[in-house]
């Protein structure tokens, strides 16, 4: 198989995983579908020469976030699960339109071509490694990340902790 065919298969798999994620009746399976989608995305990232991002994607998005979702489902959705299962048939009907839509849009997009009417980036290709970029060149982003994580942490403290206590 050529490189391109593999890419096409991977993209198709990604879209199918996403479709399954939203179409499956049980929320738990949906969370697992998200994990699978993330994993496929991680593979794509590997293939797109972005191993570091792929590792993060695999560990955090395919690992941590589904776990968060699953534990949330565990805390909330026990009642939901049964009612959702009962509505499975209705649900399929609801998402049948999505299938058609995805096929049509995919067809349209494949036949269309992105116009090549812009220049490639000028200047030399930077040679720094992602680590250097991240740790040495984008300190401002790092401070932003600290802020984001702090906000998330306070969110947990305020929302989750109190929620559990109640």
């Amino acid at each position: 198989m050529t490189e391109n065919s593999i890419n096409i298969v991977l993209v198709a798999a990604l879209v199918l995983a996403a479709l399954w994620t939203v179409m499956t009746a049980r929320t738990l399976r949906s969370a697992i579908g998200l994990a699978i989608t993330s994993a496929i995305l991680a593979i794509i990232m590997f293939r797109l020469a972005s191993p570091l991002a792929a590792v993060f994607e695999l560990s955090v998005c395919a690992g941590l976030i589904p776990v968060i979702f699953i534990s949330t489902i565990g805390l909330t959705a026990r009642v939901e699960e049964e009612s959702m299962a009962a509505k499975q048939r209705e649900k399929l009907r609801k998402y049948a339109a999505l299938l058609v839509l995805v096929l049509v849009v995919a067809g349209v997009l494949v036949t269309m071509h992105l116009p090549n009417d812009f220049a490639a980036p000028q200047g030399p290709v930077p040679t720094e490694s992602p680590q250097v970029v991240m740790w040495d060149l984008r300190h401002v982003d790092l401070i932003g990340q600290i802020g984001v994580l702090a906000a998330g942490a306070f969110g947990v403290v305020i929302l989750v902790k109190v929620s559990k206590r109640a």
Binding site: M45, S50, L52, A53, P126, S129, P130, V132, V133, D141
Partner: peptide, 10 residues
């Protein structure tokens, strides 16, 4: 890719 990865990780 370096920049893209840095952004992705953020």
């Amino acid at each position: 890719t370096a920049l893209a990865q840095a952004m992705a990780i953020t």
